[in-house]
Design a binder for these strands. Structure first.
Length: 375
RNA sequence: GGACGGGUGGGUGAGUGGCUAAAACCAGCAGACUGUAAAUCUGCCGCUCCUUGCGGGCUACGGAGGUUCGAAUCCUCCCCCGUCCA
């Protein structure tokens, strides 16, 4: 058995401390997945990721299919070998691109026609094709193709997308059953339903009937209030089997991570730590630091005085500001390193607080300190 | 000494009578970023006043004067800079 998910402990809140075993190592959950869309976590080497303790990262089916091409990656021995990554990899299906490349695609019941953002060429992505590509990539966890919709979306539209996603999940499941290798790759289904509780519930229920080894909740954190995100995640989680991993896709702000864990989520991924780092926004225990701000010009202190990351141990705000304003590559590298450390450290502390049974306390503390984001 | 070309807001640099407090870019200041079309994007960026409004006043395109209802734009003189000729 190459895959195994164990829930070691369940918190009264519903939070789970767990362990997901994959052919590429063990993942301690709740886990945060750094985003490495194009087979790289922008700004960080694989060695740096290892040093940060990253156990699993996310890559993107659509992007890698376009460039360098999944067949090339297959030839090169799969994505792990191609990018020299020993840890686990989860590949997103391209479902998010249905949302983010809205101007460049057309969705039908059969699949999605994309016009490549690289060269304008047309590509038809079906649920079967998405599985096919991910099989070539050899990711540990594959995601079904889904239709991620915008917020706000009316009941009818959300229903249609959820229904279509469910149908695609069924097709993906079938294709995976006949062509895939369950010992080598898992396939996760995705719950959709917009911000409508009844749709979330119904969609999750029906998805569970398809018996996936793990489940994701998608289509959230696309502009709706945080409380609504939580409500929808909870609605879906209530329908999901306790013995399968749950993955909340695309979240979130650091101060919200513990909330999602308490809703019973085991995995999360987000571009915020990496993208914001490149845009000069650093996450700290005292809130956000816009490193380009004039007030840091001659500030000798580390970005986060309480942080033990290699960046905070060595460099001043003044220097990081200088690197950022000078558009020096090292600025992006160091900022990314710090932000990712910060996120991973929060997850580490969430897991620790679960062991000692004070997750609620940690969650409250986190919220109080980080209250600087948009509300 | 002569012939051309040129002097525009912190920088580069458009503009050759009104739509110009003056394009664009850079720099500067602030903000956004949630399964990455993102080292991206947005706003502000002469001074000042308030009833903060596609508001009022003042100052501004090398300097001084002039033409004109109106000038960064036209004319005169002067000062600088560049290239070439003697």
């Amino acid at each position: 058995m190459s895959f195994q998910f164990e829930v070691l402990k369940t918190d009264p809140s519903g939070a789970r401390l767990g362990r997901l075993t994959t052919p590429h190592g063990v993942i301690e959950t709740p886990a945060f997945l750094p985003v490495g869309t194009a087979g790289t976590v922008k700004g960080l080497s694989q060695q740096a990721l290892e040093e940060l303790g990253v156990q699993i990262l996310l890559a993107n089916t659509y992007h890698l299919y376009l460039r360098p091409g999944h067949e090339l990656i297959r030839e090169m021995g799969g994505l792990h070998r191609f990018m020299s990554w020993r840890g686990a990899i989860l590949t997103d299906s391209g479902g998010f691109q249905v949302f983010s490349l809205a101007d460049l695609r057309k969705v039908t019941d059969d699949g999605v026609v994309f016009r490549s953002h690289l060269d304008g060429s047309e590509h038809f992505l079906t649920p079967e094709k998405a599985v096919e590509v991910q099989m070539a990539l050899g990711s540990d966890i594959m995601m079904v193709l889904d239709e991620c919709i915008e917020y706000p979306a009316g009941h009818e539209r959300a229903h249609a997308a959820a229904h279509r996603t469910l149908d695609w999940a069924r097709r993906s499941r079938e294709h995976y059953a006949t062509h895939g290798d369950a010992g080598r790759q898992m396939l996760f289904g995705i719950v959709q339903g917009g911000t409508h509780a009844d749709l979330r519930r119904e969609n999750a229920e029906q998805l569970v009937e398809l018996d996936f080894p793990g489940y994701a909740v998608g289509g959230l954190a696309v502009g709706e209030p945080h409380a609504l995100t939580c409500e929808m995640a909870a609605e879906a989680a209530a329908q999901l089997p306790a013995d399968r991993p749950r993955y909340l896709m695309g979240v979130g702000y650091p101060e919200d991570l513990a909330d999602y864990v308490r809703l019973g989520m085991d995995m999360m991924d987000c571009v915020l730590p990496t993208r914001n780092a490149r845009n000069g926004c650093l996450f700290t225990s005292q809130g956000r630091v816009h490193i380009k701000n004039a007030q840091y010009a001659n500030d000798p202190r580390p970005v986060d005085e309480g942080c033990r990351c290699p960046v905070c141990r060595r460099y001043s705000r003044a220097y990081l500001r200088h690197l950022f304003l000078s558009n020096e590559i090292l600025g992006a590298v160091l900022n990314t390193h710090h932000n990712l450390y910060f996120y991973l450290d929060i997850m580490r502390r969430i897991r620790e607080s679960m062991i000692f049974g004070d997750l609620a306390g940690f969650s409250t503390e986190l919220q109080a300190r980080l209250e600087t984001g948009p509300s």
